[in-house]
Write a protein that binds this DNA or RNA. Structure first.
Lengths: 251, 251
DNA sequence: TTTGTTTTGAACAAAAATAAACAATTTTAA
DNA sequence: TTAAAATTGTTTATTTTTGTTCAAAACAAA
């Protein structure tokens, strides 16, 4: 088996599978890992594949997907439950805001095939929806590398130019006594702006965050219209919220 | 068995099997490996087969159809050469515009460790610089999924709010007679805006694009300050550009 | 931050393929 | 038939490719 033959197999495998690692290829080609590496270097320089650490992937996938998609899976089930409820609220033709929380990110998978416009400041959301039917409007401004989002003055101004049917906002903490709280000023101010520009505001908040307070209190409970949470929310808390006039959705 | 007979069998075998090695052919033809090699050299020079180390393969398999699929990698060496020159122009503390061309994208690798601010409408550029020392300002607006970039009215307005030291713009075509041309209106209008908002405008243009004209002519040669190209630009073309008053950099 | 793990690329040894040189064979043409 | 020319096979030197080992780099986790 010479380079040309291996080249064919490698490119083909990468195309089919999206990504492969060096060991797999070494097995498949019955050759050493060093040889595979040398091949990958060459193929990457030809632009036929995208070299990654430990293997290679399809060029088309390399640019966005993997760069952002590796996001937290903490409480994934609860979050998915919440997002399924949230997705049901969305109508064809809607313009919606999505902020940069990890809960809101999971909403992407449920709206892939909807004909809607998403305005977002979240890079993972943008990357995820690149390959969907959704049309995306990305908020411009300073890129916050740590949060993988756009924040700041210009971002606020950008959002202020749009009016949306709905806003979906992830929140770090909420309590009846103190209202909404966040871990950073940036997220708080993005949330406020999105809320102001939307007809209906949905708070996505898994039950572990109910009745918790974070560093910055930034808005009263009146800022939003619907609080969506999961079934594991304690009954007494749910009752208390409803009695306080909150529209709470968890089934 | 003479050459004519062997030739037939070899070509036929290669066509059927896709690829063969010297030993197989030597067995098949009941001749020595040396003779097979001599035959292969001849057949390859006639273009009937593609010679590989250890054997031969069908020409159609070796002449790669994917090679031109990935735009980023076409003329990669030239583009890197250009970008190395471009990077030398950048000073610490600069604010620079980078547009969404494939040439400009390759500038990323040369500026990773500079303390500068990049304003861009290109999602690949943004993704690439996420893990660098560069601070990024992303242009906001409608996401063009095909081009992986942000274009449109809002994007223009966003860019108009910034003033940069330099703009690096990839161009699809340039000619002394007709000036700058592009393959799409969107790219043309982004380029124009970036140029207007910068003190110094650099055009990155590999030599294969010199003296070519694309679909849309959108600006005269006066729009930019420096044209950066590679060493393979024909001497007479370089001379002509310089005589026309263009500042051309290619070494 | 430091630690531990994985991946990588350089250096060198081993193997494979090739080309060169020359001898042996076949073909060609007088 | 015979000598020159062309082709083929064998041996040997050279080049290219591959595999192994190991230190350094990159990454992830604590």
């Amino acid at each position: 088996m010479n380079f040309q033959n291996r080249k064919q197999l490698i490119v083909q495998t990468v195309e089919e599978r999206g990504s492969v690692d060096v060991r797999e290829l070494a097995d498949l080609l019955r050759t050493s890992e060093m040889t595979v590496r040398r091949d990958l270097v060459q193929l990457a320089s030809m632009g036929l594949i995208y070299r990654t650490r430990g293997g290679a992937m399809r060029v088309s996938l390399a640019t966005d997907k993997h760069t952002f998609a590796n996001k937290t899976a903490v409480n994934a089930e609860r979050k998915d439950y919440i997002c399924r409820l949230a997705a049901q609220e969305i109508q064809e033709g809607d313009v919606i805001f999505m902020d940069c929380g990890s809960t809101v990110f999971r909403l992407c998978q449920f709206i892939r095939n909807k004909r809607i416009t998403v305005v977002t400041n979240s890079l993972p959301v943008m990357a995820e929806l690149m390959t969907s039917d959704v049309s995306i409007n990305l908020v411009g401004g300073e890129v916050d590398k740590e949060r993988q989002a756009i924040h700041g003055l210009i971002a606020e101004e950008h959002m202020a130019r749009y009016r949306a049917n709905r806003a979906f906002i992830g929140i770090d903490g909420i309590s009846l006594a103190n209202g909404l709280s966040a871990n950073s000023e940036k997220e708080a101010s993005t949330a406020t702006t999105m809320a102001r520009q939307s007809d209906k505001v949905y708070l996505l908040c898994d039950s572990s965050k109910l009745e918790t307070n974070k560093y910055l209190h930034f808005a009263p409970l009146t800022m939003f219209d619907v609080l969506i949470t999961d079934q594991e929310a304690p009954t007494d808390v749910v009752t208390a919220y409803r009695q306080a006039g909150v529209t709470l959705l968890n089934e």
